[in-house]
Structure formats: structure tokens, C-alpha cells
Design a protein around this nucleic acid. Sequence first.
DNA 1: GCAGTGACTAGTA
DNA 2: ATACTAGCCACTG
Length: 115
Amino acid sequence: MSGRVSYARIYEVVKSIPEGRVATYGQVAALADIPGHARQVGYALNALPDDSGIPWQRVINARGEISRRMDPQYEWIQKTLLEEEGVEFDARGRVPLSEYRWQSGGDGGADLGDE
DNA sequence: GCAGTGACTAGTA
DNA sequence: ATACTAGCCACTG
């Protein structure tokens, strides 16, 4: 593969994000078995074609807002797509991570009850 | 192999 | 609360 990081693994994690939920780059990286490589996650999504079927719009930065891309128009696209899924933005145009942050695992949330 | 770049994050002022 | 800095590491030329 082109790089050491398995892009497929990143895409798998992003695809597993349930609708109406969002995850941070750092969270996706950790779930992709590459903790700390949040930047690489964004890079992988950048190489992702629009028709890949990957819900890249569900990935946002740790602040809960949409990261700036080369083309600012994508900001609006991502925001619209999330709203279509039921994600609500606050007056600041940010997503309340405490409410929409995806809890990995579906593990039944054994202990993620809290935050 | 070096330099520049970037859809990040955490820390500091 | 915002603004700036440094660290991070993989991809491209």
C-alpha cells in the first residue's frame, strides 16, 4: 500500500459511524488503531472520492466544528449533510459533542453511560 | 532523501 | 472565551 497506515481501516471506522452521530478525527484514528494520527485521518478522507459511499461528513474536529478545507464550500456541504441526518448545530455552527459524539463500540456501552 | 503541506490536537498566553 | 505555537506524522514533488 501507499503508506503504512491502513486507509481501509480508517474507512471502515468512518463507515461504522451510525447515522445522526459524529466522531472526531482523533477518535477515528484511535479506533483505526492509529491513535495520535488524527491528521492522517483527514488526509485519508481528502483522498476519498465523493462517490465512495463513505460518510466522511460525520467526521469533525475535536472542537465539534467542521474543519476548514482548501475549498470552503465543503463546509456548507458537510453541514447540510449532517443536518439531513438529524444532527443539530448550535448558534456557533458547532455540534455539541456531548450529545452527538459517537460512542464506539456499540459495545453496549458497558460503561460509557457517562460522557 | 529533504522540504513543504495539511479535513488535527493539546498546551500556553 | 479566543489566538497563537509547537508537536505530530504521512503524502507529494
